[in-house]
Simulated scan of single mutants.
Amino acid sequence: MVTERDFKDFMADVCTPVAVVTAMADGLPHGTTVGSLTSLSLRPPMVTVALEQRSRLLPKILRSARFGVNLLGAGQADVAGVFASSAAERFDRVGWCPDDGLPRLRGAPGWLVCELRRHVTGGDHLLLLGLVTRVSGTRGAAPLVYGGRTFGTHSGAAPTNTRSLTDRITAFAH
């Protein structure tokens, strides 16, 4: 039997992109940090994000059927922390502006505007399937990722193992 601890420890070693999902409700911005942003489809362009079923943001997205995705960049771990907290004044602590009727974080290198097409229950989360209606951002910016229970980045400029792919495949095969 898989224990919750075993599963959490395994998943801690999986690097995930860090984003802040946002929505507007009653003229106020709302948002939360997620590590579950995934590309779903190219035709049409769709993404998925997962929110806990008890998330305060979830009913706002379900009601409006729209959400924004602010892809965070390297150096924005503090922003991720703000939106992962339960603080009510999250948007008072970061720069943001309305963009296409949704809260967009200033300095986030990537931005998606999504229409909610469907939601699917998955355990204690709801998987949101969003049709991407707008994309903007800085190509090539180093993303903020979460893995090994810490924030970091991945970039083509980051140091890597210098062995060639052929050497690695050969070593793996033997």
Score class of each variant (00 low, 15 high):
1 M>V: 13
1 M>Q: 11
3 T>D: 03
3 T>S: 14
8 K>L: 13
8 K>M: 08
13 D>M: 11
15 C>L: 09
16 T>C: 10
17 P>G: 15
18 V>W: 07
20 V>D: 06
21 V>D: 02
22 T>V: 07
24 M>N: 03
25 A>V: 07
25 A>M: 12
26 D>L: 12
28 L>G: 00
29 P>I: 14
30 H>F: 08
31 G>V: 08
32 T>N: 09
32 T>R: 09
33 T>P: 05
33 T>N: 12
33 T>M: 09
34 V>W: 11
35 G>F: 04
36 S>E: 03
36 S>R: 14
36 S>M: 09
39 S>M: 13
39 S>R: 15
41 S>N: 12
42 L>P: 02
43 R>G: 03
45 P>D: 12
46 M>F: 03
46 M>Y: 04
50 A>F: 10
50 A>I: 10
52 E>W: 01
52 E>C: 08
57 L>R: 00
59 P>M: 03
59 P>N: 11
68 G>S: 07
70 N>Y: 01
73 G>P: 07
77 A>P: 00
78 D>V: 12
80 A>K: 05
80 A>S: 11
81 G>Y: 09
83 F>V: 10
83 F>M: 06
85 S>N: 06
85 S>V: 00
87 A>G: 01
87 A>R: 12
89 E>D: 15
89 E>F: 03
90 R>L: 02
91 F>L: 06
92 D>S: 12
95 G>L: 07
98 P>Q: 10
100 D>N: 01
102 L>F: 02
104 R>S: 02
105 L>D: 05
106 R>Y: 04
106 R>V: 13
107 G>A: 09
108 A>F: 04
108 A>S: 12
109 P>G: 06
111 W>S: 04
113 V>S: 14
117 R>C: 07
122 G>T: 13
123 G>E: 04
125 H>N: 14
126 L>N: 08
127 L>V: 15
127 L>M: 15
131 L>S: 05
134 R>F: 06
135 V>A: 13
136 S>D: 15
136 S>H: 14
137 G>R: 02
138 T>Y: 00
138 T>A: 14
141 A>D: 13
141 A>V: 07
143 P>W: 14
144 L>V: 07
145 V>D: 07
147 G>L: 12
149 R>Q: 10
151 F>E: 05
155 S>P: 01
157 A>E: 13
159 P>E: 11
160 T>W: 14
161 N>L: 14
162 T>E: 15
164 S>F: 02
166 T>Q: 10
167 D>I: 06
168 R>L: 15
169 I>P: 00
170 T>N: 06
171 A>G: 01
172 F>S: 09
173 A>T: 15
174 H>M: 05
